[in-house]
Every structure is written in structure tokens, then in C-alpha cells.
Simulated scan of single mutants.
Amino acid sequence: MMKHIVMFRRLATVDRQPEFEAQLVERMRGLDREIPFVRAWKVSANELERAICWDYLLESAFDDRDALDRYLPHPAHVALITDLKRYFEWAACDYSET
């Protein structure tokens, strides 16, 4: 199993846009329904206001690295990333879980 974890936070150069942010998060939460080989998918919002915290966390899982490699260029993922780049920055960690 390959885990794909991503943290998102609003870009420092972008003013908070609650409605746009909510739309992006809903799209993130539903992306797994568009990609049949996603094995696990969860988007959570940060609940504490601390400088070290990011705004959202995506926890996902794929059968193997090949499945993750197919996910990254998937058209539904690319379309979402195109819009996310306007509002969020992110950091990712990919690792194998046995």
C-alpha cells in the first residue's frame, strides 16, 4: 500500500476567500469518486490556530507506487490542482505501508 499525504495552506499572498476555499475543499473531498483506483481518501480541516499548523490535510492510499503514479497525471487531479494553485501551497509525503 502506498500512502499519499498532503498538507495545504492558503498562500500568504492571497486574501482569505471563504466561499472559494469551501468550493476547493469540497472538490478535494470528492476527488476520489472520480478516480476508481483510489483505495482510501480523507480530507480534514485544521481545528487549532497555531503558526505551525496548516489548513487542511489529505490522507490517501493507493495499491502501489504505480497506482499513485497514475493518479498524479489523472485529468481530474490535474484540473483540481490547476485551481488549487491559485489559493493554496502544499507539501506532500509519499511512503509505502506494509
Rank of each mutant, 00 (worst) to 15 (best):
K3I: 05
I35Y: 02
L80T: 03
V38R: 02
Y56C: 01
K3W: 14
D64K: 00
A45W: 08
P75E: 07
H77S: 09
T13L: 11
C53K: 08
D69V: 07
R10W: 08
A67R: 01
R33M: 08
K3V: 04
A51K: 13
L31W: 02
Q23K: 14
F8G: 01
P36N: 05
I5V: 13
D69P: 10
F62L: 03
Q23S: 14
L24Y: 02
P18A: 09
T82G: 11
R10P: 02
M28Y: 08
K3C: 07
R29D: 04
R50A: 09
E21Q: 11
D32M: 04
N46E: 11
W41G: 01
A67Q: 02
R33H: 10
V25L: 07
D64S: 05
F37E: 08
R50D: 08
F8M: 03
F8P: 00
R27D: 01
D55L: 03
P73Q: 03
E21M: 11
V38T: 09
I52T: 14
E34M: 12
T82R: 10
G30E: 03
H4W: 06
L57G: 05
V38K: 01
Q23E: 15
M28G: 04
Q23Y: 12
A40Y: 12
V78S: 11
F62T: 02
V38M: 06
V78A: 15
L72P: 05
L57I: 13
F8Y: 05
L11V: 11
R50E: 09
S60N: 01
R65Q: 15
R50W: 10
L31S: 00
A79W: 00
L58C: 07
W54H: 08
I35M: 06
T13W: 07
E47Y: 14
R33Y: 02
P75V: 04
W54M: 08
S60Y: 02
E59V: 13
A67C: 09
H77T: 13
H77N: 12
E19L: 12
L72W: 07
E49P: 04
E59W: 09
D55F: 01
V6F: 03
A76P: 02
A79M: 07
I52M: 14
G30C: 08
A61K: 04
R39M: 06
E47V: 08
P18K: 06
R27W: 12
Q17I: 10
F20S: 13
L58Y: 01
D63H: 06
L31C: 05
Y71W: 08
T82P: 04
L84N: 02
S44R: 11
R9I: 09
L31A: 04
S60P: 03
R16V: 13
D66A: 15
P73L: 05
F62R: 01
P36W: 06
I81F: 12
L48N: 14
R16F: 12
R70C: 02
L72E: 14
R10S: 03
